[in-house]
C-alpha cells in the first residue's frame, strides 16, 4: 500500500474542522483494501459493498475518536473487522462453522469444476484469490492484512485482538495452508510460476 498525496492525519483534521468533502480522499485511498477485507467474510459482492460502505460511515461518525496513536488504516481495519463480525452475528452465522462449511463446500465445488477448467488457464490473480477463498476467515484475513493492507504483526494483533507472536504463527500457518491448496488444486499454474 503506497500512500501518495496528503497524509491521512491532515485529511482527518480537515474533516473534523468541518470539511466533510475531504473524507472522499480517504474513501478513495482505502476502499479497495476495506472491500477486499470484507470479501474475506462474505463472498457476496453486493453484501461486501454494503458492508464496506457501512464501515466508512461508521469511521466517519467516530472520526473524532481517532487519536492518531496508530495508523489510520489500522484503525479503519479494526472497524472493518468488528462490522463484519456483527454482520455475521446478525445473520446468525457462526463464523467458525462458516469457516468449516465454506472450506468444505468450496473444496467440493472446486473439485467438481476443477477438471472442467483444467484446459482453461486461470490468471494468477484469479488462482491466488480462489486459493485464499478456500482458507478460513482468520487465515485469509491475516494474509490480506499483511500483504495487501501493509500492516505489521503488531498492527494485525491490534486489529484481530491477538498477541503479535500469535499473529506470527497464524501468518506462518496461513501461508503453509495456502501453499497446500495451491499445490492441490492449481498444480498446473504453480508449475508455470516455478518455470518462470
Amino acid at each position: 500500500m503506497i500512500i501518495t498525496g496528503q497524509p491521512d492525519k491532515e485529511i482527518i483534521f480537515k474533516v473534523l474542522k468541518g470539511d466533510a468533502s475531504s473524507y472522499a480522499l480517504l474513501v478513495e485511498r482505502y476502499q479497495n483494501y476495506v472491500f477486499t477485507l470484507v470479501l474475506r467474510f462474505t463472498e457476496n459482492r453486493e453484501d461486501a459493498e454494503e458492508l464496506a460502505q457501512d464501515v466508512f460511515v461508521k469511521a466517519f461518525r467516530s472520526l473524532a475518536d481517532f487519536r492518531g496513536e496508530s495508523k489510520f488504516s489500522t484503525w479503519l481495519f479494526t472497524i472493518t473487522r468488528t462490522t463484519c463480525i456483527s454482520f455475521l452475528r446478525k445473520k446468525k452465522l457462526d463464523i467458525q462453522s462458516l469457516d468449516n462449511e465454506r472450506t468444505g463446500l468450496q473444496v467440493e465445488n472446486q473439485e467438481s469444476g476443477f477438471h472442467a477448467n483444467l484446459i482453461e488457464q486461470k490468471s494468477r490473480h484469479a488462482m491466488l484469490n480462489e486459493a485464499i477463498a478456500m482458507l478460513s476467515t482468520d487465515d485469509s484475513q491475516v494474509l490480506t492484512l499483511f500483504y495487501k493492507g501493509d500492516q505489521t504483526l503488531e498492527e494485525i494483533g491490534r486489529i484481530m485482538r491477538m498477541e503479535p507472536n500469535t499473529v506470527k504463527v497464524k501468518l506462518y500457518r496461513a501461508r503453509q495452508r495456502l501453499r497446500e491448496k495451491m499445490l492441490k488444486y492449481f498444480a498446473h499454474e504453480v508449475r508455470e510460476i516455478h518455470a518462470d
Binding site: 468533502s21 473524507y23 474513501v27 479497495n32 472491500f35 477486499t36 459493498e49 500483504y147
Partner: peptide
C-alpha cells in the same frame, strides 16, 4: 496481488450516505 475494487460509484455512495 492487487486488492479487489468495489463498484465505480462506491465513493459517491459513501459521500451521499
Amino acid at each position: 496481488e492487487e486488492p479487489d475494487a468495489p463498484s465505480l460509484r462506491f465513493t459517491k455512495n459513501v459521500m451521499e450516505e
